[in-house]
């Protein structure tokens, strides 16, 4: 019995050490197997805390999730003038449809698409919509435009990880994928009663 008692913790230590070694190796590989090309620099191969915590099949524990989400929440830039949804839905539509930007074949890190349709249904008439994210058809019509819904939507667009640290959705505002003006247009696309999303 005594022998077993000693061996078990040792085996545990050994497997933890092996996991650490594997983690170090993968981090090294994710850097050394890549090269910078144009705007796609090697900085992109270094994980931030959220990326690191969400790089396994299972999400981290609830406390860690909460802590990460609070930190991401603090990065959200709310519109200074309080104008959330007075953008142009037609511009928002263009942004939602475009999946362009930020690859190593793009010349500039600006003028990116939002890539919304890659994962979400929005305008019911657009058949070529992805299914990874929830359907956003009739978004404003079904959810209404209470302050709570509008603020949540702005925050989700700006930094999705504030609401779910391991969300599959990119951090559009925080990550510099979309500008504040672009996010305002996407908000209009979601909320404007005239937008095809709400038809």
């Amino acid at each position: 019995m005594k022998k077993l008692f000693i061996v078990a913790p040792l085996a545990l230590c050994a497997s933890v050490a092996m996991a650490d070694e594997l983690q170090a190796k993968v981090e090294d590989m994710m850097l050394k197997s890549f090269q910078a090309n144009g705007i796609a620099t090697l900085e992109r191969q270094k994980q931030d805390e959220v990326q690191k915590a969400c790089s396994s099949p299972t999400p981290p524990d609830a406390d860690t999730m909460k802590r990460l989400e609070a930190a991401e929440m603090a990065t959200i830039k709310w519109p200074a003038d309080g104008h959330y949804i007075d953008g142009d839905w037609k511009e928002g539509q263009k942004i939602a449809l475009s999946g362009r930007g930020l690859t190593w074949t793009d010349k500039t890190p600006d003028n990116n698409g939002g890539g919304c349709y890659n994962c979400h249904a929005m305008d019911p008439k657009e058949v070529s919509a992805g299914t990874i994210g929830v359907s956003l058809e009739g978004y404003g019509k079904t959810r209404g435009n209470s302050e709570e819904v509008i603020k949540y939507t702005w925050g989700k667009l700006w930094n999705s990880k504030a609401y779910n640290a391991c969300s599959d959705m990119p951090r559009n505002g925080f990550g510099g994928i979309l500008t504040e003006v672009q996010i305002r247009h996407v908000m209009a696309y979601l909320f404007d009663p005239a937008s095809p999303v709400n038809q």
Partner: peptide, 13 residues
């Protein structure tokens, strides 16, 4: 590990 490794401008793995 690489399959689940989130990185890059859009946090994708």
């Amino acid at each position: 590990k690489a399959f689940y490794y989130r990185t890059g401008a859009m946090d994708f793995a």
